[in-house]
């Protein structure tokens, strides 16, 4: 069903933009990955502030904007912001980020005109996003397995056909999903896991996966940041983290093993001492602190990629393509 942005009301658009811009520029809004709003709690998300609700249905009814678009924009911002504990700050933390990231908080909203139908923006964004990750310029390109890359291209092809109005059969999607599971499972380089897991998450019809896409994107961006951060760690920490990433896969496989059907993760790890050692090493408070510091150093490296995604969304919103 077509949507009418700002419910076709110029006054609503002006009021929303003014209210959100004032709070955003005063850093009174926290970019989250989910809808958060309350009259009793001062911590509110960007999407929550836009519609003054944390009810997904009300968000759309009050704004004429899809929630997945708002959450996708907020997720991209969230990935570029560091949250640093500060007991003297009103919320107990301060947020630090590049101006190129902060500015997007209102840019995307400002790019939506009254009466625009933005219901297809996320579905049109997804093939572009996946294509950029497959490009040779993407920093994890050397670590992305050829099988994963091939499945990603299959997904893009099916999405492109869907965007052209074609109905892709369930059998075709099912075949690509089987390929995606196989490719992800056999992706050997731990630094390639983020792309492998992203691709494994995506082989579904566009309209079906779009609602889930902000959460999938957030998980990918978080894993991507972690891989970038590992490169800033001391050598032993790097070894431990790579072992931990591999161990997390082993643990995940073991959870599906019939002999561990009723076992907690702790019990399973007691049967996998090598995996347990690797995971515990990265959970030591000093190791966690070093990883946090490494993430602070790595986050600026994500800014060009994040900004590229933001610009793609702006282009789609402005119908420049």
């Amino acid at each position: 069903m077509p949507l009418r942005a700002f419910l076709g009301d110029p006054a609503l658009r002006a009021e929303t933009l003014k209210r959100v811009r004032e709070k955003w520029e005063a850093r009174q809004i926290t970019p989250f990955i989910f809808l958060k709003w309350s009259t009793k709690n001062p911590i509110a998300s960007l999407a929550g502030t836009i519609a003054e609700t944390q009810d997904p249905g009300q968000f759309v009814a009050r704004t004429g904007i899809t929630l997945e678009l708002a959450l996708l924009c907020e997720t991209l911002i969230n990935a570029g912001i560091s949250f640093v504990d500060d007991t003297e700050a009103p919320l107990g933390f301060v947020m630090r980020g590049d101006d190129a990231i902060w500015s997007f908080g209102t840019e995307w909203l400002d790019a939506i005109e009254v009466d625009d139908d933005v219901s297809d923006v996320v579905t049109r964004f997804m093939p572009a996003f996946l294509s950029q990750i497959l490009s040779d310029d993407f920093p994890l390109s050397p670590q992305t397995a050829s099988g994963v890359r091939a499945v990603a291209h299959e997904i893009i092809d099916l999405w492109t056909r869907e965007l052209g109005g074609e109905i892709v059969s369930r059998q075709e999607w099912r075949a690509v999903r089987a390929n995606a599971l196989r490719a992800s499972e056999t992706s050997g380089d731990p630094e390639g896991y983020p792309v492998a897991e992203l691709v494994e998450s995506l082989p579904w019809p566009l309209t079906s996966i779009a609602v889930e896409f902000p959460a999938i994107c957030q998980k990918f961006l978080n894993s991507y940041l972690q891989v970038l951060a590992v490169r800033f760690l001391p050598e032993q920490d790097q070894i431990d983290w790579i072992k931990c990433l591999v161990g997390a896969r082993e643990l995940s496989r073991a959870r599906g093993d019939a002999r561990f059907a009723d076992a907690s993760d702790e019990d399973i790890l007691n049967h996998l001492p090598r995996v347990k050692r690797a995971m515990l090493a990265t959970q030591q408070p000093e190791a966690v602190s070093r990883m946090d510091a490494a993430k602070q150093r790595a986050r600026p490296l994500m800014v060009p990629f994040l900004r590229e995604q933001m610009d793609t969304i702006l282009t789609l919103l402005r119908r420049d393509v």
Binding site: R177, A180, L181, E197, E200, S201, L202, P203, W204, I209, E212, I216, S252, R255, G256, A261, D262
Partner: peptide, 17 residues
């Protein structure tokens, strides 16, 4: 009564499980 624990976290894996 519990008959299985699903350990996957992507829709693709969960659907397969």
């Amino acid at each position: 009564e519990h008959i299985a624990r699903l350990t996957s976290r992507t829709r693709t894996q969960l659907a397969a499980e």
